[in-house]
């Protein structure tokens, strides 16, 4: 059908060029020998070497990975509970307000989440003495709050489109709801949980604004280091870092894409 619409094809080609040109330029210039990022000085991998010796950056990357992993796991648990409540408990009190509270973090500007949570943490410390100061824990709490909303959306759509007959059969045969959840529902929604975990991990790894508000001394995350270096202008080391991130993501997406594609083709 697309063949009849040369304009649509043009729109697609131009659109994808716009999306990918910056990414390609990042990758190409990460192998540039010259310090001036946009002047080609010959092929080199020296920036990767320098990146590997950049202690503060590596430390921040490790901090970010720890927070992102914990965040993703917590967000999957909370997000799944929220999705179950939204899809299965439509008549329960609080259903409507939970729906609003899950949608709002998806669009709320990060700067609002960051500022408001910092003020909450300051007030909580004042009253309860907890959380003591700000650091990894406060970043984690903040990240779980907004990434669980994304997990909820993913799991919710999976639950809504899921075949319920197996669950109902088990329930009719007298299985308890808990048993049904762990032996039937959970395996069926597992792909959504996996996707949700990965998305929550990525969102946490990528967050600059919220972390800047709620972090404390000794809890500098990777985006904070990248930001302070990028503010001073282009830096080939950041290009190298970008290339590594892009390679990892592209590989993961490629693997998921191919397996999804095969599954779809088998079903077709």
């Amino acid at each position: 059908m697309l063949k009849k619409h040369p304009l649509l094809v043009l729109a697609l080609v131009a659109g994808y060029a716009f999306l990918y040109a910056p990414i390609i330029s990042l990758v190409v210039y990460s192998f540039n020998d010259s310090r001036l990022v946009t002047v080609w000085g010959g092929f080199s991998t020296r920036w990767y070497g320098e990146l590997m010796n950049n202690e503060p950056l590596l430390e921040a990357a490790w901090m970010s990975i720890k927070i992102a992993g914990l965040n993703a796991s917590l967000a999957v648990v909370l997000g799944t509970l929220a999705a179950l409540a939204l899809v299965r408990l439509r008549k329960q009190r609080g259903h409507q307000s939970l729906g609003v509270m899950v949608t709002a973090p998806l669009v709320m500007p990060e700067i609002m989440i960051g500022l408001s949570l910092l003020l909450l943490f300051v007030a909580m410390e004042d009253v309860f003495g907890w959380p003591q100061g700000r650091g990894m824990l406060t970043i984690l709490l903040a990240h779980v709050t907004f990434s669980m909303a994304y997990v909820t959306v993913i799991v919710q759509s999976r639950l809504a489109h899921m075949d319920r007959s197996l669950e109902e059969a088990a329930l009719d045969l007298g299985a308890r709801p808990m048993t049904v959840f762990f032996t039937i529902t959970l395996p069926l929604i597992a792909p959504a949980l996996g996707a949700g975990w990965l998305l929550a991990f990525t969102l946490s790894m990528d967050d600059l604004v919220i972390a800047s508000f709620v972090s404390g001394p000794g809890s500098t995350t990777l985006p904070m280091v990248v930001y302070s270096s990028v503010r001073l202008g282009v830096s080939p080391q950041i290009n190298a870092l970008a290339t590594i991130i892009i390679a990892v993501v592209a590989l993961a997406v490629l693997i998921t894409g191919v397996s999804l594609y095969r599954k779809e083709m088998r079903q077709a």
Binding site: L19, Y20, A21, P22, I23, S25, L26, Y29, V37, T38, T202, M205, D206, L208, P223, V226, Y227, V230, G233, V234, I238, L241, A242, I245, I246, V249, A250, A252, V253
Partner: peptide, 18 residues
């Protein structure tokens, strides 16, 4: 979706060089 999974900060940074 792919660009969405790579760092937002770094994609904005790419435009400085361009």
């Amino acid at each position: 979706i792919l660009p969405f999974w790579t760092s937002f900060l770094i994609r904005v940074y790419a435009w400085i060089g361009i």
